[in-house]
Protein backbone atom coordinates (compact mmCIF):
# COMPACT_ATOMS: atom_id res chain seq x y z
CA UNK A 1 0.00 0.00 0.00
CA UNK A 2 1.02 3.62 -0.37
CA UNK A 3 1.25 5.94 2.59
CA UNK A 4 2.22 9.58 2.63
CA UNK A 5 4.93 11.24 4.65
CA UNK A 6 6.66 14.55 4.57
CA UNK A 7 10.29 13.66 4.07
CA UNK A 8 12.99 16.31 3.93
CA UNK A 9 10.28 18.91 3.31
CA UNK A 10 8.69 17.06 0.43
CA UNK A 11 5.40 15.22 0.50
CA UNK A 12 6.05 11.69 -0.59
CA UNK A 13 3.91 8.61 -1.06
CA UNK A 14 5.90 5.55 -0.09
CA UNK A 15 5.18 1.92 -0.82
CA UNK A 16 5.09 -0.14 2.36
CA UNK A 17 3.76 -3.15 4.21
CA UNK A 18 1.91 -2.54 7.47
CA UNK A 19 4.48 -4.53 9.46
CA UNK A 20 7.50 -2.58 8.27
CA UNK A 21 9.61 -0.21 10.26
CA UNK A 22 10.26 3.33 9.17
CA UNK A 23 13.88 2.31 8.53
CA UNK A 24 12.93 -0.43 6.10
CA UNK A 25 10.45 1.79 4.33
CA UNK A 26 12.91 4.65 3.98
CA UNK A 27 15.71 2.43 2.69
CA UNK A 28 13.42 0.55 0.30
CA UNK A 29 12.34 3.87 -1.14
CA UNK A 30 15.79 5.19 -1.82
CA UNK A 31 16.61 6.99 1.41
CA UNK A 32 19.71 4.87 1.87
CA UNK A 33 21.45 7.62 3.78
CA UNK A 34 19.65 6.18 6.79
CA UNK A 35 21.83 3.27 7.91
CA UNK A 36 21.08 -0.02 9.60
CA UNK A 37 23.65 -1.15 12.13
CA UNK A 38 21.56 -3.42 14.33
CA UNK A 39 17.82 -3.12 13.71
CA UNK A 40 17.30 -3.35 17.48
CA UNK A 41 17.39 0.23 18.65
CA UNK A 42 20.88 -0.25 20.03
CA UNK A 43 23.26 1.61 17.71
CA UNK A 44 21.70 4.84 16.48
CA UNK A 45 22.86 4.49 12.86
CA UNK A 46 19.22 4.76 11.78
CA UNK A 47 18.36 8.01 13.54
CA UNK A 48 16.00 10.39 11.79
CA UNK A 49 14.09 13.38 13.02
CA UNK A 50 10.43 12.68 13.54
CA UNK A 51 8.57 15.93 14.10
CA UNK A 52 11.96 17.44 15.00
CA UNK A 53 12.81 14.78 17.57
CA UNK A 54 15.50 12.19 17.03
CA UNK A 55 14.18 8.64 16.96
CA UNK A 56 15.58 5.25 15.98
CA UNK A 57 13.77 4.61 12.72
CA UNK A 58 14.24 0.86 13.22
CA UNK A 59 12.11 1.14 16.35
CA UNK A 60 9.22 2.94 14.72
CA UNK A 61 6.50 1.17 12.79
CA UNK A 62 6.03 3.24 9.65
CA UNK A 63 2.22 3.11 9.78
CA UNK A 64 2.21 4.85 13.12
CA UNK A 65 3.89 7.97 11.74
CA UNK A 66 2.04 8.51 8.50
CA UNK A 67 1.72 12.13 7.42
CA UNK A 68 4.38 13.11 9.87
CA UNK A 69 7.44 15.21 9.23
CA UNK A 70 10.57 13.17 8.77
CA UNK A 71 14.07 14.47 8.25
CA UNK A 72 17.07 12.36 7.34
CA UNK A 73 20.69 13.46 7.39
CA UNK A 74 20.20 14.76 3.86
CA UNK A 75 17.37 16.94 5.09
CA UNK A 76 19.88 18.57 7.43
CA UNK A 77 22.41 19.29 4.71
CA UNK A 78 23.66 17.89 1.44
CA UNK A 79 27.02 17.49 -0.22
CA UNK A 80 26.47 20.70 -2.15
CA UNK A 81 24.81 22.55 0.66
CA UNK A 82 26.14 21.11 3.88
CA UNK A 83 25.02 22.17 7.30
CA UNK A 84 27.54 23.84 9.56
CA UNK A 85 27.62 20.80 11.84
CA UNK A 86 28.39 18.54 8.91
CA UNK A 87 31.24 20.78 7.78
CA UNK A 88 32.67 20.80 11.27
CA UNK A 89 32.33 17.02 11.63
CA UNK A 90 34.31 16.51 8.43
CA UNK A 91 36.86 19.12 9.42
CA UNK A 92 37.42 17.67 12.88
CA UNK A 93 37.97 14.07 11.85
CA UNK A 94 34.74 13.04 13.55
CA UNK A 95 34.09 10.68 10.66
CA UNK A 96 36.23 7.67 9.96
CA UNK A 97 34.22 4.98 8.21
CA UNK A 98 31.27 7.35 8.30
CA UNK A 99 28.71 4.64 8.88
CA UNK A 100 27.67 6.12 12.20
CA UNK A 101 27.85 9.68 10.83
CA UNK A 102 24.29 10.08 9.51
CA UNK A 103 22.97 9.09 12.93
CA UNK A 104 25.57 11.15 14.77
CA UNK A 105 24.69 14.20 12.70
CA UNK A 106 20.98 13.76 13.39
CA UNK A 107 21.65 13.40 17.12
CA UNK A 108 24.00 16.39 17.22
CA UNK A 109 21.68 18.54 15.14
CA UNK A 110 18.69 17.78 17.30
CA UNK A 111 20.73 18.44 20.43
CA UNK A 112 22.06 21.78 19.17
CA UNK A 113 18.73 22.85 17.82
CA UNK A 114 17.19 22.53 21.26
CA UNK A 115 20.17 23.92 23.04
CA UNK A 116 22.88 25.75 21.16
CA UNK A 117 25.24 25.85 24.14
CA UNK A 118 25.06 22.42 25.70
CA UNK A 119 27.34 21.59 28.62
CA UNK A 120 29.70 18.67 28.18
CA UNK A 121 27.39 16.38 30.05
CA UNK A 122 24.46 17.48 27.91
CA UNK A 123 26.51 16.68 24.81
CA UNK A 124 27.30 13.22 26.12
CA UNK A 125 23.69 12.60 26.97
CA UNK A 126 22.60 13.80 23.54
CA UNK A 127 24.90 11.24 21.92
CA UNK A 128 24.10 8.39 24.30
CA UNK A 129 22.18 6.38 21.70
CA UNK A 130 24.87 6.42 19.02
CA UNK A 131 27.61 3.83 18.80
CA UNK A 132 30.82 4.46 16.92
CA UNK A 133 33.55 1.86 16.82
CA UNK A 134 36.10 3.82 14.80
CA UNK A 135 36.70 7.15 16.47
CA UNK A 136 36.53 6.44 20.17
CA UNK A 137 34.12 9.43 20.23
CA UNK A 138 36.77 11.96 21.13
CA UNK A 139 36.69 13.84 17.85
CA UNK A 140 32.91 13.52 17.66
CA UNK A 141 32.47 15.20 21.02
CA UNK A 142 34.99 17.80 19.91
CA UNK A 143 33.00 18.43 16.71
CA UNK A 144 29.81 19.03 18.67
CA UNK A 145 31.62 21.41 21.01
CA UNK A 146 33.06 23.31 18.06
CA UNK A 147 29.70 23.45 16.31
CA UNK A 148 28.15 24.86 19.42
CA UNK A 149 30.77 27.58 19.78
CA UNK A 150 30.50 28.57 16.11
CA UNK A 151 26.72 28.75 16.45
CA UNK A 152 27.09 30.88 19.54
CA UNK A 153 29.66 33.15 18.01
CA UNK A 154 27.47 33.79 15.01
CA UNK A 155 24.48 34.02 17.27
CA UNK A 156 22.42 31.66 15.16
CA UNK A 157 20.43 28.53 15.75
CA UNK A 158 21.26 25.19 14.17
CA UNK A 159 19.63 25.43 10.79
Amino acid sequence: MKISFNINNQNRELELNPNQTLLTVLRNNGFTEVKCGCNEGECGACLVLLDDKAVNSCQVLAMSVQNKKIKTVKGIGTLHNPNLIQKIFAGTGADQCGFCSPGMIVASYSLLKENSSPSDSEILEGLDGNLCRCTGYIKIIEAVRRSSSVLLKNNVEAE
Binding site: G41, G44, L47, L50, K53, A54, V55, N56, Q59, V60, A107, L111, E125, G126, L127, D128, G129, N130
Partner: peptide, 12 residues
Protein backbone atom coordinates in the same frame (compact mmCIF):
# COMPACT_ATOMS: atom_id res chain seq x y z
CA UNK B 1 13.56 8.01 33.55
CA UNK B 2 16.50 10.03 32.32
CA UNK B 3 18.65 6.98 33.02
CA UNK B 4 16.55 4.80 30.73
CA UNK B 5 17.66 3.54 27.32
CA UNK B 6 18.98 6.38 25.12
CA UNK B 7 17.92 9.87 24.10
CA UNK B 8 16.25 8.81 20.82
CA UNK B 9 14.51 5.86 22.46
CA UNK B 10 13.22 8.05 25.27
CA UNK B 11 11.57 10.09 22.54
CA UNK B 12 9.49 7.01 21.70
Amino acid sequence: LSQAASTPLRNR
